[in-house]
Amino acid sequence: MELTEAMRTVGTCRYFETTPVPDDVLHQAFDVARFGPQGGNRQPVRWIVVRDAARKQALADLYLPMWKAYLAAVGAGTVNVGALPKTVQDADHFAEHLAQVPAIVVACAEIDGLHPTDTELDRVSVVGGASIYPTVQNFCLALRDQGVGSAVTTLLCHHEPAVSELLDIPAGVLTAAHIAIGYPAKGFPRKLTRSPVEDIVAAETFGRPYFTTAAV
């Protein structure tokens, strides 16, 4: 598959077939993913593939109450997700059926391999993720290239102690994302809705548009 097409159609898959994803497909995806950019080539990312029905159910049992609370807040208007009702409906279906996906891949990272430089700023720290999430995106793109869908969620990171106990994750290793994977039941998106380049790229200073007309 051509790279640009994969990037434009990887999307978030919320409806999965029950067909297992073969180990050789996973191996190929992990093999490609490991070349994601990372600070100092420390290679902090580690993966856990969860196929066992009981473990998937345990993860789903942690996930669903958090999602339902979030969904209730959306319904009450206290949280504005800016998403279409259909998207919220799809996300609810995903949450209700998380235990049935073929596999849940847990993206972990060795904390000693991260070097966040923003921990003293008066805001949430995000820099450490720069050595993690490019590798996660590589994984999703490599799956897309092989016809496998994925859905990345960070909601379960709230329950990291429980997840660590369930999956025997040692001290010094954090959870960065949980990725549901499987063959898509409804195919891949043909067109994803994203903000135009003109709205998100600035020239020299924030808020000064770099592009004033759409590129041909």
Rank of each mutant, 00 (worst) to 15 (best):
A130L: 12
I132N: 01
A83S: 12
P85E: 01
H97R: 06
L141C: 05
A142H: 10
E110T: 05
A95R: 09
I104D: 08
V136E: 00
R144V: 02
L114D: 03
Y133Q: 04
R123A: 11
A142W: 08
I111S: 12
V101L: 09
E120T: 13
P85H: 05
D118S: 05
E120L: 15
F139H: 04
V81A: 13
E110W: 09
L121C: 00
N80T: 13
D118F: 12
V101F: 10
A142S: 06
D122M: 04
E110I: 06
I132V: 15
P134W: 03
G128C: 12
S125Q: 15
P102F: 11
R144Q: 01
G113H: 09
Q100H: 13
G77D: 03
D112F: 03
N138C: 12
N138D: 10
T117L: 14
H93Q: 04
T119R: 11
R144T: 00
D122P: 01
A142P: 07
G77S: 06
V127F: 04
Q100T: 11
A83Q: 14
V101H: 02
K86Q: 11
T119V: 13
R144H: 00
G113S: 06
G129A: 11
H93F: 12
D90C: 15
D92N: 15
A103H: 03
S125P: 06
H93E: 03
P116Y: 03
F94D: 03
A130K: 12
D145I: 05
S125E: 09
V79R: 15
R123C: 06
Q100S: 14
K86A: 08
D145K: 14
K86D: 00
F139E: 02
A91G: 13
C140N: 10
A103M: 14
A109E: 09
C108V: 08
E120G: 02
F94M: 10
V81P: 07
C108Y: 08
E96P: 04
T78E: 04
V127E: 00
A103G: 01
E110K: 01
G113R: 09
A142Q: 06
N80W: 01
T135R: 04
F94K: 06
V126M: 08
H115V: 14
